[in-house]
Structures are given as C-alpha cells and as structure tokens.
Design a protein around this nucleic acid. Structure first.
Length: 515
RNA sequence: GUCCCUAUCGUCUAGUCGGCCUAGGACACCGCGCUUUCAAUGCGGCAACACGGGUUCGAAUCCCGUUGGGGACGCCA
C-alpha cells in the first residue's frame, strides 16, 4: 500500500441503459479522488454482457460525463497505454490468464449445466439452506475430464476457492472479512468461452495499475471473490472504497418510478451541471467544516476525502436538488443562462430558432434580461418560458410546464382588474398612460420621471401609486421590478419576435380598454 | 433461509481519542422583517441520538441483544 504510487482510479460502467444519478455519483467520487491526489481518472467500458450492451448507451454515457465536467484523462475515447479499454476488445487477454490458472490448477473445468445448477439451488432454497455450489466438479478424476472433453461436453472455468477467510480493508467500510466456505467457486469463463465480470474486473484493474477501486456497495460481496482471484493470479489487490446506495424517497432503491433519475433527463429539464455535481457530492460525503454547502467542483476536489464518506445509504431529495439548482441559477447572469435556456424559448415558440433569427445575438442579449427578471421564480431552466408570461403577456400557466398560448391576446388577470377598480387607482393608471402616450421613447429613466409626474398629479404614493401602474402595465398585481420590466417591454417590442412582445403604450391601451 | 453491511431532526448530514452536545449546519415546513407587489434575501421557530441491557465518575460516541433498513447468495454487471 505505498501511497507514493500515483493514484489511478477508474469508472467502469456497463453500457446497458441510461446512466443514472447513482452511477454518476460513483464516477464523481472517482473523479474527485483522482483530482484531489493529482492522479488519473480512467473510463473503461464493461460490455461483457453482449445481450444488453449497446453502442448508443456508450455514446450517451460519455456525453453525460462530459456535460457534467467529469473529464477522464485515459480510457475509451482518450486512449492510453493500458488499452484497449473496452472489455469486449480484451477477450484474448482474459483467455490467456484463464489458461494460466487452469495450468496451475488454481481453476478447474466444471461440466455442470446451467439447468443442473439451477435445480440444485432450488433444492437448497427449499430446504432453507444457503444456495452454494456443491463443488461437484472440483475434484473430477483426470480420466473423467478427458473423456468429457473428447465427447465435446461444454464446461465453465471455475476458480478454486481456498479454505480459510478472505478480507480486505475498505476505505469506507473498514475491515470486511468472511469465511471462504460462504463463497461458491466463481465462474471465470462461461461455457461459450466468454469471461465473466468478476474475472475481467480483476485482470483489468491489475493490468491497468488501478490503485483505488471506488464503486457501489453492491459489489462488496464480489470483492471477496475478486480478492481470491487476485491471490490466484499473483496480483496485489488495489485499495477498495465502496459507496452506499442512493435510495428513493420511499427508502427503496432509486428507479424510474421515482421520477427523474437519468442524467439525460436532468439535463433536459434544465438542471445546471454544477448544481448536480454539488448536490451529488454532498450525498454521502461532507466537508470537514460545517455550514456552507455551495461549492464549485474545484472547491470540492480540494477537500474531498474518502475517509469522510458515510456508510449508510442516502435518500435522494429532489427538493434539495431544486434548491441547489435555484441557487446556481440565481448566481449565474441571465446572459449566460440565455445560451442554454434559449432552446426552451424556441420550443415554446417565443423566440425564433437560432438559425432562422436575423440577429440571434440581440435576441440572446434581450432574453438574458428577461431571464434575470424571472429567474428567481424557477427551479430549473425549462420552467423559464412559463415564468416569462409577465413579459410576453400570456396568463401565467401556474405550474404548467410549457403551456404557452401562441397567439393569445394580452391577459388582464382578475387581481389586476380589482386593483384598478377604485377610482383613485384608475386615475393613477390613466395619468400614467397619458404621460406615456406623450413620450416618444420609454425607458427606465423616463419611467422614473413619469412616476414623479403621476405622484404630483394624483397625490398618491407608495402602494397606491405603484400598484395601479403595475396592474395597468402588466395585467397582473405582482411581478418583477417595473423599472427594469419597462425597458424589457420596449426593447422586446422592437425585436420582432415570433410572439410579439407588446410595448408599454400598447399594453396600457389594451388593459385600460378592458376595464 | 444463510451470510455481510447499516441505524442522529421528514430528508442530507456534523459529531473522528467517551466529557467542550442543554446534539451543530443545510433542505423542506412555519413565523417575522425588508420591498410598491411576487420571488429572491435577512432573522427566528419547529424538529433527531430506533429500542433494551451492560462497561464507566460520565455514552449519540464502547460492548451485547432486539427491531428496522439495505445488499449478497447467477454461465448479470
């Protein structure tokens, strides 16, 4: 265990589906550990399950990692001197080691059929016994083996598990030790000659000089088998660190029915990668200092310590993720958010597709101001178009995902109508409108001047002054700061957007006519 | 069934050698303040050591048991 050795860790997913938050947290902890210690973070693809592995999942998974900023510096897509990094490209290597184990009698051929083994297991289960391999083929006389081979009988290769105990010192769970009598002789090679996970994993981690295996705690029992395999192969085992499972709010393993779980889905819904990374890092790990929880990836990297990872499973809390995402959204300037948020506005028909937009830069700049106005109301970016109703003029689809009416007229909400009902309120609104109509150009500065004019003419102030103006201008009785909103209305009106943004004068005329 | 792991507020967690813990922080929730309004924000509140035995002058912290939760027992990974 010399700590001088450069740290090498790997993330080794199977491309059998969309990658979910649990896997990503594993990748993240590997990435953080490598980053903290200035080591190598490798991506290896475990596609020995030919049935379920698909190339598109591999693509997706790499895209997800890149999006999150979990860049790997060796492995699939990056190369390196320990390749190939896809297990399906390494079968020759596994065969070679299997041969060696067989020659050294550390492994043996098992001629039991899958059906046979299954029957035995069922029998054992029925008798309430621990289902274990009987060891039937462990000591087959050589003559019998030769005979079966001559007859072309299919066989698997099993590791000969030694008596005694196996154990290892897990970086998060501590010493874990069991009697080898509790572990069946693991199958190394299937009857079709393909290698199994436990075998590939050991050979790859050894050959790729992995120093720390950081993975889900579902592998904890596998680790015993793997340690035995390391022994048989004559390799020194790496350090292990097992991460507890992430559960859904009901305490069950996180799955699709808990809502969004795939990274792809979080991205689609407008979660920021830095928020997801921050949240996931705090699931099972915490910094040594109490208090602050908002950290950049680099800040986390600087403090990350496997020794501070908790052993018990953590429940994924969407509400806290939302809070964190909100925090990041509010920290990020609208003009920056506009780049990632624009597609949501395009989809809602509020801005033209970028390639059909005569001046996309102007649109983005304006969109950034809209976003700054309404972003404190959203949990994730895909809610932005609906939250922008106050600018576009449609009635707020409260909670509605993308319910943005394309051609609806300006909507005067009941609360705004009520706010304008008293004669004094109406007088304020009309005086404001009169001043606005008389002006060529409206902006934040002229708004302040007009406000003074209305104040002088109507003798109203405070709420009685602002509220009617807000209602007559926005059709609502609450919303963002008027001074900034007015400029956004005016500039939006000049932009020629697919869904026209009404100017202040147009709004005043329309709303006052509705009373 | 057998084996392994695990157990602090509703949730994420701090608590690293037992005393500094009348158990701290964050999310959620509730209240108050700020603000023309809403949101944001600031302040405050509610809320936990699963249970039972030990060991000890002293236990959330150590030991045993009970209960709850998770996992494994595959020619899946």
């Amino acid at each position: 265990m010399d700590m001088q050795k450069p740290v090498r860790v790997r993330f080794a997913p199977s491309p059998t589906g969309f990658i979910h938050v649990g896997n990503v947290r594993t990748a993240l902890f590997n990435w953080l550990w490598a980053g903290r210690l200035g080591g190598t973070f490798m991506l290896r693809i475990e596609d020995t399950d030919a049935e379920r592995s698909e190339a598109r999942y591999e693509e997706q998974l790499m895209e997800d990692l890149r999006w999150l900023g979990l860049d790997w510096n060796e492995g699939v897509g990056r190369g390196g001197d320990c390749g190939p990094y896809r297990q399906s490209d390494r079968y020759g290597i596994y065969r070679e080691y299997a041969r060696r184990l067989l020659d050294e009698d550390k492994a043996y051929r098992c001629f039991c059929s899958a059906e046979e083994l299954d029957a035995v297991r069922q029998e054992q289960a029925a008798k309430k016994e621990t289902p274990l391999y009987s060891g039937k083929c462990r000591h087959l006389p050589q003559g019998e083996v030769d005979e079966k081979l001559r007859a072309g009988a299919p066989f698997t290769l099993r590791l000969r598990v030694r008596p005694g105990t196996v154990g290892f010192d897990d970086l998060v769970f501590g010493r874990v030790e069991i009697a080898t009598s509790m572990v069946s002789d693991p199958v190394l090679l299937r009857s079709d000659g393909s290698p199994t996970y436990n075998f590939c994993c050991v050979i790859d981690d050894a050959l790729m000089r992995i120093t720390h295996v950081i993975r889900g705690d579902g592998h904890l029992p596998n680790t015993h088998r793997q340690v035995l395999a390391y022994e048989a192969l004559g390799f020194a085992p790496p350090r292990f660190a097992h991460l507890s499972t992430i559960l859904g709010p009901d305490g069950q393993k996180l799955s699709k029915r808990h809502g969004a779980t795939s990274i792809e889905e979080f991205r689609r819904r407008g979660y920021l990668p830095e928020a997801l990374v921050n949240y996931l890092a705090l699931l099972g790990w915490s910094p040594a200092t109490d208090g602050e929880e908002i950290f950049s990836a680099d800040e986390i990297k600087a403090q990350f310590d496997l020794g501070r990872v908790v052993k018990s499973p953590a429940v994924f809390d969407p509400a806290k993720l939302d809070w964190m995402n909100r925090t990041y959204i509010n920290k990020t300037p609208g003009e920056v958010l506009a780049k990632t948020a624009r597609p949501y506005f395009e989809e809602a028909g509020l801005v033209a597709d970028a390639d059909a937009d005569p001046d996309p830069a102007a649109t983005d700049a304006w969109l950034g101001r809209v976003i700054d106005l309404v972003k404190t109301h959203v949990d994730h970016l895909d809610q932005l178009p609906a939250a922008s109703g106050v600018v576009y003029g449609f009635a707020d689809a409260a909670g509605g995902e993308t319910a943005v009416p394309p051609e609806a007229p300006l909507a005067l909400e009941d609360a705004a109508r009520a706010a304008l009902a008293p004669p004094e309120a109406r007088a304020v609104a009309e005086e404001f409108a009169r001043l606005a109509y008389g002006r060529e150009r409206l902006d934040s500065e002229s708004y302040r001047e007009m406000l003074g004019g209305v104040k002088a003419a109507t003798k109203q102030k405070g709420r009685n002054l602002y509220h009617p103006i807000r209602a007559a201008l926005t059709g609502r009785d609450s919303g963002p700061d008027l001074e900034r909103l007015i400029a956004v209305y005016e500039d939006g009106a000049r932009l020629g957007l697919p869904r026209k943004v009404a100017s202040c004068k147009e709004r005043l005329r329309a709303f006052l006519a509705m009373l």
